[in-house]
Design a protein around this nucleic acid. Structure first.
Length: 339
DNA sequence: CTTAACGA
DNA sequence: TCGTTAAGG
């Protein structure tokens, strides 16, 4: 998922101090997917309430947003709207892989292959309507603003950064750079623990920022060429050229000058190429949002999480207290938010 | 993922 | 106090 151009990008490690007082526009889909796939029991089952509803994402939101808030960061969630038509293949491929993973999960469980089972359990994660809706509900109760993007969330976060409404686009994917986001932050977590793919090993990960203009300059290319590199490697809208990773793609684009020339030279084609390039350059975005952080509604959070979804009241109250304290501290210092 | 509990 | 491990819902 997402475009694999990380290897050619210059990243800067950042501490949470660097992000204090900064607004980060979070790619909602990306974050929820991460929560759903990672917050699980050892057998692969996600957290669920007594009625069988998945709650992993609610746990992730509650604790991570509390931590970010405590660090003085102003988070905004941005949710996807209608995807472009040329994303249809990717979407149906994802649905297919997810269905397959679901079957393989059951098979592995029966055979007692726990590591296999866990892997397929993760791959069967789905950000469905209910997941999005109750995430928005919880965020609203926590006083964190949400933005509904007309199309791709990462395009909207890019727009908000470049307009000056946000300081960073936050996602694990690099796609918002293709939409022109000037600053991107990855690994936006407090306790940076990430599971190495395949192995059962966890490594520490620090938040890192990526500066678009610095990278454009360093690579000695322009934005169109960066998009060209992405299209060579493969994006959510196209498959990518065979055996071409980011380094080869960079070489090809620099050698031939443009994605059009690269394709011409190789005798290959990408469907609706110009429409896709234009989509990265001029995606649908909206100004219809208001960024306002409000005090958490303690009773509503407790009712929602504890009464309706079986969270421990002790844990939830502790998190809400931290949230309240962080907000009060902030409004005393800066006087800008929370009213 | 994040917190809480536990043992060195 | 810190690193490891289990539990959370």
């Amino acid at each position: 998922m997402g475009v694999d151009i990380g290897d050619i990008l210059e990243k800067r490690q950042v501490g949470l101090d660097d992000l204090a007082h900064r607004t980060v526009a979070i790619d909602g889909y990306n974050t929820l997917y991460q929560f759903l796939s990672i917050i699980r029991q050892r057998d692969g089952t996600p957290l669920k309430d007594s009625r069988g509803n998945i709650t992993s994402h609610l746990s992730g939101i509650l604790y991570r947003m509390t931590n970010l808030f405590e660090a003085g960061i102003k988070p905004v969630f941005v949710f996807d709207g209608k995807p472009p038509d040329f994303k249809a293949d990717t979407i149906s491929q994802r649905n297919k892989s997810r269905e397959e993973a679901r079957t393989k999960w059951d098979e592995a469980k029966e055979k007692g292959l726990s590591e296999e089972a866990y892997k397929y359990a993760q791959a069967s994660s789905k950000v469905d309507t209910r997941i999005v809706e109750d995430s928005m509900q919880l965020l609203d109760f926590m006083g964190i603003p949400c933005v509904q993007a007309p199309s791709e969330g990462e395009a909207q976060t890019a727009y908000m950064v470049n307009k000056g409404d946000a300081d960073y686009s936050a996602s694990q994917d690099y796609d918002s750079l293709l939409f022109g986001a000037l600053r991107v932050v990855r690994n936006l977590t407090i306790t940076g623990k990430r599971k190495l793919p395949g192995k059962n090993v966890y490594i520490d990960v620090e938040p890192e920022s990526i500066d678009l203009m610095q990278n454009i300059k360093l690579l000695d290319i322009d934005r169109q060429q960066l998009i060209g590199i992405a299209l060579c490697v493969g994006t959510d809208y196209n498959k990518g050229l065979k055996k071409v990773g980011p380094k080869t793609a960079l070489k090809l684009i620099k050698q031939h000058g443009s994605i059009h020339k690269v394709l011409e030279h190789r005798g290959e084609a990408i469907d609706e190429l110009d429409a896709k390039i234009d989509f990265f350059l001029n995606p649908p975005v909206t100004d219809a949002y208001e960024l306002k952080w409000k005090p958490p509604q303690k009773e509503k959070i407790v009712d929602f999480l504890c009464k309706q979804h079986d969270f421990s009241e002790e844990r939830v109250l502790k998190a809400v207290d931290r949230l309240e304290k962080a907000g009060k501290q902030r409004s005393q210092q800066t006087l800008d938010q929370w009213f």
